[in-house]
């Protein structure tokens, strides 16, 4: 049976069972997310080949333990199982994974709008966040996730930071053709 990646709707190719403190948890990742987390995959082969190879294995093929938050030691699998993050730092450490979960839970919203603590006013590094969102936008475009790309574009504009002209153009093109191309995740 095919399984979705823990972090996105892609088909998972890495399947790992982790036992930590006597608690069993499972990890399922697509090629992109497996690589992002440092799993070493035979990179020259296409995804199909990896799938068939992995399916032959009976024991986990992963070469390293799942990443854990340096502050509270929660892994993404544990966060997913609990439905709760372990500490505020988890949100920075697992920003990519949690960002996708949050987006799904929050009706597609990607960026906070509203009040903020005084101490955070100057800390909000708009340029850094913009770079992150712009990177996610490019990834969304390359994966043909147009609806998501349009939301990221909106978030970028909402930030009120100067946005690269080319990117805006790309984003607006996306927005205009978005609806029909973006299928719902299976």
């Amino acid at each position: 049976m095919q399984r979705e990646c823990d972090c996105c709707p892609e088909i998972a190719v890495v399947h790992e069972t982790l036992v930590r403190d006597g608690v069993k948890s499972e990890v399922h990742l697509c090629v992109a997310h497996a690589q992002e987390r440092g799993y070493i995959l035979p990179s020259s082969e296409g995804p199909t080949l990896i799938v068939s190879k992995l399916l032959e294995q009976t024991k986990p093929v992963a070469v390293r333990a799942a990443r854990a938050c340096p502050v509270c030691a929660m892994t993404m699998a544990a966060i997913r199982a609990a439905g709760l993050a372990g500490c505020p730092q988890c949100y920075s450490f697992f920003e990519g994974d949690l960002g996708l979960i949050i987006e799904r839970a929050q009706g597609g919203a990607t960026v906070h709008v509203g009040r903020h603590p005084e101490h955070a006013g100057e800390l909000v590094d708009r340029a850094a966040m913009r770079n992150k969102l712009a990177k996610e936008l490019r990834e969304a475009v390359s994966r043909e996730e147009y609806e998501r790309a349009a939301r990221l574009r909106d978030a970028l504009l909402q930030l009120g930071v100067p946005v690269d002209k080319n990117e805006v153009d790309i984003a607006f093109k996306i927005g205009s053709q978005g609806d029909e191309k973006d299928g719902a995740p299976s």
Binding site: P88, H112, R126, A128
Partner: peptide
């Protein structure tokens, strides 16, 4: 605790932001 992108941070991801 506040995150520039996710806003006020909460234990459950469904409460982050405001």
């Amino acid at each position: 605790s506040f995150h520039p992108r996710f806003g006020y941070l909460t234990a459950c991801p469904t409460n982050v932001g405001t």
